[in-house]
Simulated assay, not measured.
Amino acid sequence: MPRILLVAQETGGIGKSTVTRGLAEAVPDAPILEIESVPRLTEFKTADVSNQPGSVQHFPMRATREAIEASGGKAARAEFDPVINALYAVTTASLVDIGANTSASLLGILREEAPTLREAGIELGLVVVVAAEAGALADAGKLLQGTPAWTGARFVVANGVRGAVDPVILKRVVGDATVTQLRGFELEDETREVLAAGQLRGVARLDRASLVQQTSPAQAGRILRDLTAFRLAVMEAVKPAALWLVGEDEAAPASAGARKGGPKRAGNT
């Protein structure tokens, strides 16, 4: 049974794409479906066909939140048809990166589609990214509400980039979801520029000699150490979800009726 892991958050700028990138590093053969107004995962090759390992298939979302609300959700449902069709065509462990202001609409549709997807041999899992912002925590609670009935497993990554997430509020929001922490990192401006150029996938390919030429021996060392630590921290934060995606999740919570299975392939997590 192929598994699909949905990465969601209605609030933007919380680190959802970073979590998707970490999952892609942990499960490098997983195809990625990106649901965004414009492509953001540009460091990955574009898929020529469905289910292409390690590639991104982009689904542009054009309907604004105002249009969605004015049409009672019809504007979003029409745009999601290609996405739903692509989910039914999945044959291997896959990732879905859902853009901000889009997650709630898509999850609402998937709540209705999930039983039929399961009959087709496809199991859905959910990762919700949260941060210390009240809006992000509130949105996370809304996204997680009702999902145990149709997801095989639920995960929450608490991103400490803007400060620690209140554990009391977090526990109240996440329910029985598996929670991991991504600690905050104070990266220098030059380090952030290097990260932005290649993202997580580029960290392992950084050449110290080139960095020394661009900066200095001392600064090059700091950049390499900081980015290596950041990449490792992201991959550790997504490890439980990555293990579920490839079917190595005996300890992960599963909803009633959800079946085990899926490909047994993963990178280093």
Rank of each mutant, 00 (worst) to 15 (best):
R154Q: 01
A134H: 13
A132E: 11
V156K: 09
G152S: 11
W150N: 04
A149G: 13
V157M: 04
A131N: 15
A131G: 13
G152H: 05
K142I: 03
G141A: 12
V129F: 14
G146M: 05
T151L: 07
E133D: 15
Q145S: 13
P148Y: 04
V128I: 11
V128G: 10
L137V: 04
G146N: 07
L144E: 03
K142T: 10
A158V: 04
G141Y: 04
A131M: 13
E133H: 15
W150P: 04
V128H: 10
L144H: 08
A132H: 13
V128N: 11
V128D: 07
V128E: 04
V157Q: 08
F155H: 01
P148I: 07
D139R: 08
G152D: 09
G152M: 07
G146S: 08
K142H: 08
Q145H: 10
T151C: 08
V129Q: 12
L143P: 06
E133S: 15
A134C: 06
L143W: 00
A153D: 01
A140I: 08
R154S: 00
W150Q: 04
L137Y: 00
G152A: 14
A138E: 06
R154E: 00
A153E: 02
K142M: 01
L137I: 09
P148T: 12
P148W: 07
G135C: 03
D139T: 05
A132S: 15
T147G: 07
F155K: 04
A153P: 01
L144W: 02
L144C: 06
A138D: 05
A153G: 09
A153V: 02
T151V: 09
G135Y: 06
A153H: 02
L144S: 06
V128W: 05
R154I: 00
A138R: 12
V130A: 14
K142D: 02
P148R: 07
T151E: 01
E133Y: 10
A140K: 11
G141K: 12
V130G: 08
V157F: 04
G146Q: 06
V129K: 14
A138K: 11
G135F: 02
A136D: 03
G146I: 08
A158R: 13
V130F: 10
A136K: 14
A138F: 03
A149H: 12
K142Q: 02
R154N: 00
V157H: 05
F155G: 01
R154C: 00
A136R: 14
V128K: 13
A136S: 14
G141Q: 08
A149C: 09
A158M: 08
G135S: 15
A158Q: 09
A158C: 06
E133T: 14
V128A: 12
R154M: 00
V129D: 11
A140E: 02
A131E: 09
R154F: 00
R154G: 00
K142S: 05
F155L: 04
P148D: 09
G152K: 06
G135R: 13
V157D: 01
A138M: 10
R154T: 00
P148N: 03
L143V: 01
F155R: 01
Q145K: 12
L137E: 03
D139P: 10
F155T: 01
F155V: 02
V128R: 10
G141M: 13
T147N: 06
V129G: 12
L137T: 01
G152T: 06
E133Q: 15
L143H: 02
A134Y: 12
F155Q: 03
A153K: 01
D139L: 01
G146E: 06
T147P: 08
W150V: 05
D139G: 13
V156I: 05
A140M: 08
